[in-house]
């Protein structure tokens, strides 16, 4: 297997034109909303990368770009060094087979009229990966792999629990024998015990099958457990990236520190929370986009925007006044 990156994003921008708030009928000025604003990252074979950040930071938009569901308005999104937007023929087939997605809303993303057997077999049929005779054997094997009893094969979505649905979504994702799994908030909303089971399953699968994993979450504990690398996003930009363990042990960016402080921890005092919410990505003021909520902000932070710069071979951050390690 080549070690060239599977995914590479080169300064990807995704902007939407939205109606200006309060604009009158006669001045319906359009404004630019930058959901992604210069994202640069890569995912190598076998690597696991967590994308973290508050809601509204652009995580889902990033995933949609990676899956080719929407195209960058600037910059390039590459799959095996080819533009995702213009994949065709064999490249397109290969992309569909190699990249599998798991969504947050398992119940909404699974067709309620299909049995579990048909749901899991759909990618097998689509990519012609099995014959009629071994179809149900293949599905049974996938079900066992994700900890479901094959006896459930004839059931429908409505008769399954939240945890069982996530397992089906994972079995479906594995059916096409992908090399990359991308997941958006795939364990949020689950009970702690079910979440722990699904996370352990994902980690075991990723390690045993050598899968690459891109996992979107707002839970730093989940990121740390599943992923070797982490990218912290704020308002459409990566503000800090590196090895998960290093970043969470000694964050350099004040936003990463704030996320860490807010994460529940046994018997720790609930620290002063990060004030306010993620502002709207429309008409951002010049300077660092975190300045309005940053406890370390100084005059120069309002003047220009800090770039994502490498501080060591394994660490990058975008801040003029980083925290000392």
């Amino acid at each position: 297997m080549s070690t060239a990156p599977i995914f590479r994003l080169l300064d990807v921008q995704k902007a939407y034109d939205v109606d200006a708030k309060g604009g009158s009928l006669f001045s319906r000025a359009k404004r630019r909303l930058r959901a992604l604003d210069g994202v640069r990252l890569s995912l190598a074979p076998g690597e696991s990368l967590a994308i973290v950040g508050e809601s509204g930071s652009g995580k889902t938009t990033l995933l949609r770009v990676l899956l080719g569901l929407t195209h960058p308005t600037d910059g390039r999104a590459l799959f095996r060094e080819k533009d995702i937007a213009s994949l065709d023929g064999v490249d397109r087939d290969r992309f569909c087979r190699e990249v599998a997605a798991i969504y947050q809303d398992a119940r909404g993303s699974l067709n309620p009229r299909m049995s579990v057997l048909d749901l899991i077999a759909e990618p097998l049929d689509h990519h012609k990966l099995c014959t009629n005779s071994d179809r149900s054997d293949r599905v049974a094997a996938l079900m066992s792999r994700v900890g479901l009893s094959p006896a459930m094969m004839s059931r429908y979505v409505s008769a399954l629990s939240g945890g069982q649905l996530r397992r089906i979504a994972i079995a479906r994702a594995l059916a096409s024998e992908p090399s990359v799994l991308v997941a958006d908030e795939a364990v949020s909303g689950l009970d702690v015990s079910t979440q722990a089971q699904i996370l352990k399953l994902l980690r075991d699968l990723q390690r045993e099958m050598g899968l690459s994993l891109l996992f979107i979450t707002h839970d730093l504990g989940v990121a740390a457990y599943l992923c070797d690398r982490i990218a912290v996003m704020y308002l459409g930009r990566v503000v800090e990236a590196g090895l998960t363990r290093e970043v969470l042990k000694a964050p350099a960016h004040p936003y990463t520190r704030a996320l860490l402080n807010a994460s529940p921890r046994f018997f720790a005092p609930i620290s002063d929370p990060l004030p306010g919410e993620v502002p709207s990505p429309i008409d951002l003021p010049p300077g660092c986009r975190f300045a309005g909520r940053c406890v370390r902000a100084q005059d120069d932070c309002q003047k220009s925007e800090p770039a994502l710069t490498p501080a060591s071979p394994t660490r990058m951050f975008a801040c003029f006044h980083p925290l000392a390690s």
């Binding site: 900890g147 945890g163 702690v192 015990s193 079910t194 979440q195 722990a196 089971q197 996370l199 352990k200 839970d219 730093l220 504990g221 989940v222 990121a223 740390a224 457990y225 969470l248 042990k249 860490l260 994460s263 529940p264 921890r265 046994f266």
Partner: peptide, 20 residues
């Protein structure tokens, strides 16, 4: 104890999930 074993802090290395 089992519920506590399901909690992820940001330095949790191993999980011991309860059987479903």
């Amino acid at each position: 104890q089992a519920l506590k074993g399901c909690v992820l802090e940001f330095d949790t290395e191993e999980l011991e999930p309860l059987p479903s």
